[in-house]
């Protein structure tokens, strides 16, 4: 991977990785640290990283760093002001968004991650599996279970709207 390709990765993927980690951790400072750490790892390994697979490498590095962080700090304090700061959409939709945010927090870590990778980045089951070290089938099952749990949490359209 050339320096130019690396810098392109910063431009193209830094925001996406940051959003993914921030959504999982809900802690801006830690999310920044995780993203910086992921890019630092890629820079160190740039000679072995194919520019075309850089995005996958970044998400994989960031995901594992995040998991390490969660394991070390399970009792982390969720940033309560996070939702208020970032829910800037219209009122009619922010209700649903807030409910979804609450709902996804109820999911196990792995289900949350695979759903966010799927929805945020549009990764295939195979790509997600490579990132979180699961088989394609396992990813599919986790996504299915996660969505069912979200639906049950939300309950009904009346509750959403």
């Amino acid at each position: 991977m050339t320096t130019k390709e690396y810098n392109q990765c910063v431009d193209e993927y830094a925001d996406g990785v940051y959003r993914f980690i921030l959504k999982n951790l809900r802690d801006e400072d830690t999310a920044k640290d995780v993203v910086q750490d992921a890019f630092a790892k890629m820079w160190e390994k740039r000679e072995n990283v194919d520019g075309k697979k850089a995005k996958s490498y970044l998400f994989t590095a960031a995901y594992h760093t995040m998991i390490d962080y969660i394991r070390k700090d399970r009792k982390r304090d969720v940033d309560d002001g996070f939702l208020e700061r970032h829910c800037t959409e219209s009122n009619s939709y922010s209700d649903l968004k807030e409910i979804l945010d609450e709902a996804i927090e109820t999911l196990p870590e792995i289900q949350k991650s695979v759903i966010l990778l799927r929805d945020y980045e549009g990764y295939s089951y195979k790509e997600i599996g490579d990132i979180v070290e699961l088989t394609e089938s396992q990813v599919k099952v986790y996504i299915f279970r996660g969505r069912l749990a979200l639906k049950k949490y939300i309950g009904s359209m009346e509750m959403v709207l």
Binding site: R19, K23, H86, D119
Partner: peptide, 9 residues
Amino acid sequence: FTADQNIEF
């Protein structure tokens, strides 16, 4: 889920 494009690194 849709990513909030307002959130940037």
